[in-house]
Design a protein around this nucleic acid. Sequence first.
DNA 1: TTGGTTGGTTATTGATCAATCACTTTCTTG
DNA 2: CAAGAAAGTGATTGATCAATAACCAACCAA
Lengths: 186, 186
Amino acid sequence: MTSGQSGTTRLKTAEATSVNRREQILEAAVVVFAEHGYFRATTAQVAEKVGISQPYIFKLFKNKEELFVAALDRAFERIIRSFQSVTAPAGELLNETIRVYEQLMETHPSEIVLQVQAFGIRDEAIRQAVQKGMQEVTSLVEGKFIAAGIANPEVEVSTFMANGMLCNIAMVLEMPSLKPKHLKLE
Amino acid sequence: MTSGQSGTTRLKTAEATSVNRREQILEAAVVVFAEHGYFRATTAQVAEKVGISQPYIFKLFKNKEELFVAALDRAFERIIRSFQSVTAPAGELLNETIRVYEQLMETHPSEIVLQVQAFGIRDEAIRQAVQKGMQEVTSLVEGKFIAAGIANPEVEVSTFMANGMLCNIAMVLEMPSLKPKHLKLE
DNA sequence: TTGGTTGGTTATTGATCAATCACTTTCTTG
DNA sequence: CAAGAAAGTGATTGATCAATAACCAACCAA
């Protein structure tokens, strides 16, 4: 058996199963990587944040690269889940999708920062993870736009992604003036 | 005297003055940093590409960070010079600016990659250099758009920058499908 | 009670590199 | 040509870390 789910189920108290530990480590890793960057962040910092020893990380993750990829996947999964949950009529779908993303940037800023970092890392495994994440997000949004019957879905999605990227960059650079200007008023 | 410009001026043969060396090093640094990323790239790789010893780099640059910032400044300067050179009537200005940038991506891809990398580096000096570069580019383009009498210049500039960012990211990720879809046809 | 499984630790090491130090060589000019 | 400046090198080092090795402890089941 893997977990501590014994006869007298002691659930709720977040037992130290390896699955829980993995989650804790990932949560810490997202923050540490976002704050210091992939190369400057150390596995010791992640461990410290979780309250475990540095080597224990390598019992649950093959190496630092895999840890980063897992953290990145987590970030993309949240974005995808958020966008999946969006429901709105065609006329409101774009604005609603933007609203959901803006909320995500507030509630999980580190995961957004992680994304931007990942764009610049020259590492095959990481690049593949980013490619996959970006492809999934694009496809998902496009599917929604098409299903809603929005005109020129490809262009709309592309514009949405472009503004999203600029938004991300404005965030990591701490340049609010760079944020996209929508101008929906006419 | 600093250079070898003696009486019998032996110009043209690219003498090994420290100014020339600085330029050579920067040119190599742009390529090496773009290829391996700031942290994986080593000063030894840069030196090898120039054909000098690794320690000599530190005679011309205080440290690795300063070398990167200088390389980054160079990249931004080229972008700015390119945009400054743009002249077109209001109706064509946006397209012409796009064209110039697309050409830059072809002729100096490493400098574009360097930019994207720089977004993700958590280092104060580097972040400041990126901020300055982005601010200058935005202001310059906005100035041009305003001077040409384009309507909603702020929004147009923002959209232009957003698509530029998406374009950069499509490039570094090697995801051509992510490239912006303009759709000027009606 | 014993032995296997799960969850953990301490200590260490092997590589990697930026950066410095102590020199040498090559100009050039008075 | 002497001598100082400019250009450049070889050797080394001091830190930093990912990753491994080797070992410990708590628990449970047969």
